[in-house]
Amino acid sequence: MRNKVVLIILIYFISAACAQGAAWPFAKKGKIKLTEARELYAKHDYDGAIVKLKDFLVEGTVKRREKRAYLLMGDCYEKLGRLDSALNTYVEGVELNPKNKELLTRLAALYERTDLTQNSIETYRRILELDDEDADAVLGLARGYAEEGFFSKAQQYYKMFFDLKPKNIKSYFYEYALVYYKQRNYNAALFHIGLSLEAYKNQYKNNFLAAQISRDMGNKENAAKFLDAALAAENNYEAVMTKALWAVQDGDYASALKIADGALAEDPADRLALYIRYMVFARQGKNKEARKYLEKITAQDNDGFIRRVALVNLNANI
């Protein structure tokens, strides 16, 4: 009996050693391919690296669960701008390694970059199931929900993110303020954009948002001040035309006309500038003059909002 037991154990060890011995050359060969792929990646030969990685990942008909290879291959595709292939690589990697945070994070971030917001939200949620303190996933969810218009939820995740990373939050105050602004919670929006301005005083987007918030709160003076600061930081069409629109609203028609003329000098078909001219004359009761601009807009070949609104005004009794 004892001899039989010894024999069985011996057979077991011999078989295991044989199996390992048989697999060993393949494993070694695979490892070489992975190393070669890394070397090619380092030399920026991403196509070459992908060929090696494909060989490495499929051994016969069996796919390896090698997460490092999926990460590297996804990265190569991203570097080449082949985002669809990168997505497929990460999706496959995640299918084979469903609990790998690094692969999930790459996948979620790529979903986010390619505007597949719902997928990114779902993937970030999976990351949080694995680690409820993953700050990147929390921030990803905040941004995803903000993108989808779910601002109350976005706000909750921003708060969570700030709790998780209290030392590095200054650069996120702009987007946090924007979430409040989109909820028309102007006091909180102004407070947070103020914090953002403390850190980045001369940044266009901070000043432009501060201008919008101030204007919506009825503080025209501050709005004008921030808008000028935004324009000083960057000559942005959005800010210039906003200035013209506000001038129309405030009855400062001369300023509105000058700005619109500047835009029309650059592009005679600028529909917004034409509409501003229309509004200036219509609001002064100069309907005949106003009508000319509506005709110019409606003669254009497009079906955008400005043309449609011009058409309605044209058909109305103006």
Partner: peptide, 30 residues
């Protein structure tokens, strides 16, 4: 300041603006 802004148009490269964004600006205003 207005003159400066008008002058700024000339300084901008092309100053072309996406029609969708123009629509969005007027939509927001109206």
């Amino acid at each position: 300041k207005i003159f400066l802004i008008v002058f700024a148009f000339a300084a901008l490269p092309g100053f072309a603006y996406d029609a969708g964004r123009q629509d969005a600006l007027l939509r927001d205003f109206l």
